[in-house]
């Protein structure tokens, strides 16, 4: 029961309270770049969920079995994480192209865009909080990281799809000429971020 509450808290925090785009302001590049159409926003979102999950698992293993035993966790985490994530995504892309062409068509074009995205790196850094907790088993730590990774991705997808819906409407709205395109998109994003700050006090 207690475990379930902890996981629920992690999920709620990842999706709403600490939404990567709207309250941590990470991954703004894909957020603005790929939010013009809902279909591509969903594709991008799925790719982010996929990469964040993979990255969470892989970096936590690196941290527990390499960085921590050799006391390198304070200065080598970001460097090794970037390398591992980039290579992992690259490898998955290669394998996907050969083994699952349909999946590659849906996600493949977005994968290279997020190999070293700050949102992906951000989630692995947040996961390190779990590793620093006292009295937590290795599997527990790994499981929490993965859950956090999945739902951070879900939060990113939520923000991206909402934004794409808004921007599709903005397309046919009478926007002043100087504000058309990205400027009005940023203003809309700011309003969304304000709305998401309503979650700030929870949990």
């Amino acid at each position: 029961m207690e475990q379930a509450v902890i996981y629920l808290k992690i999920i709620f925090a990842a999706v709403f309270v600490q939404n990567f785009v709207l309250s941590k302001f990470l991954g703004l590049c894909p957020f603005i770049g790929v939010s013009k159409k809902r279909s591509s926003a969903i594709g991008m979102g799925l790719a982010v969920i996929f990469v964040m999950t993979l990255a969470s698992a892989a970096t936590m293993l690196i941290y527990q079995y390499l960085l921590k035993p050799f006391k390198m966790e304070f200065y080598l985490d970001i460097v090794s994480f970037i390398v591992v994530i980039a290579a992992l995504v690259q490898f998955v892309e290669l394998a996907m192209r050969k083994l699952a062409p349909a999946l590659y068509k849906a996600l493949g074009i977005y994968l290279p865009l997020i190999t070293t995205n700050c949102a992906v790196l951000g989630v692995t850094q947040l996961n390190l909080e779990f590793a620093k907790l006292n009295g937590i088993t290795l599997t527990d730590c790994l499981l929490r990281s993965i859950v956090n990774g999945v739902f951070a991705g879900v939060g990113f997808t939520l923000a991206l799809v909402l934004m794409a819906g808004i921007r599709e409407r903005l397309e046919s709205s009478p926007v002043p000429e100087c504000m058309q395109g990205v400027p009005i998109a940023f203003i809309a994003a700011a309003c969304m971020a304000l709305a998401f700050f309503g979650f700030a006090g929870i949990a």
């Binding site: 690196i62 050799f70 200065y75 460097v79 090794s80 591992v84």
Partner: peptide, 11 residues
């Protein structure tokens, strides 16, 4: 040397 070695190894 540990840092260098492990990064080179990972790479």
């Amino acid at each position: 040397s540990i840092a260098l070695g492990s990064m080179a190894g990972i790479g």
